[in-house]
Simulated assay, not measured.
Amino acid sequence: MGKGNTRAIRSLGLSLMVLVVVGMCEVKMASAELSAAQCKEERRIGLNECKAVLYGKLPTPACCERVRVSHMECVCPVITPKLVALIDVNRAIRLIEGCGRRVPRHFKCGSITTP
């Protein structure tokens, strides 16, 4: 697999993870500001936990748990129009609901606004 394909898969995975995070009923905000390194690590762990979703599988219990503990302030800033173009929002919403979460209507996270 070429470098471009790997980047596209990682971007897609991050995007799917973000949409799963957007689906949280209660938006978790950190009581103290997280560092850039902490946010980067949180995104890395989330991508690893939810990677199977890229291959058409349902989110694992570990992926859904990651969704519940992720901080929006770490995820939303990296959602660019380029990343949004790589995802199917309707599929992502179905995956979110598979984790037992509602998707807030008209919620803005980076370049995504949910339907």
Score class of each variant (00 low, 15 high):
42 E>K: 14
39 C>N: 13
17 M>W: 02
79 I>F: 12
17 M>N: 07
88 D>S: 08
36 A>I: 13
20 V>H: 04
13 G>Y: 00
48 N>I: 02
70 S>Q: 13
75 V>Y: 14
43 R>F: 02
3 K>H: 12
6 T>G: 04
13 G>H: 00
17 M>S: 08
15 S>W: 08
69 V>L: 05
108 K>W: 02
113 T>C: 05
97 E>H: 14
29 M>W: 13
83 L>N: 07
28 K>M: 02
25 C>N: 14
27 V>D: 06
29 M>Q: 15
9 I>H: 03
25 C>A: 10
101 R>L: 09
86 L>I: 09
58 L>C: 04
88 D>Q: 13
53 V>T: 15
61 P>N: 06
12 L>D: 00
66 R>P: 00
26 E>N: 04
19 L>W: 10
34 L>M: 14
4 G>A: 13
84 V>S: 04
33 E>R: 15
86 L>S: 00
115 P>E: 04
113 T>D: 02
32 A>R: 15
32 A>Y: 11
35 S>I: 01
35 S>C: 06
62 A>H: 05
15 S>V: 02
45 I>Q: 11
15 S>R: 03
93 I>D: 04
26 E>D: 03
7 R>I: 13
56 G>N: 07
17 M>K: 03
9 I>T: 05
45 I>H: 07
82 K>N: 08
28 K>W: 03
45 I>T: 11
34 L>Y: 08
46 G>L: 15
48 N>Q: 08
22 V>C: 06
93 I>C: 03
41 E>P: 02
20 V>E: 04
50 C>D: 01
31 S>C: 05
28 K>Y: 01
1 M>H: 13
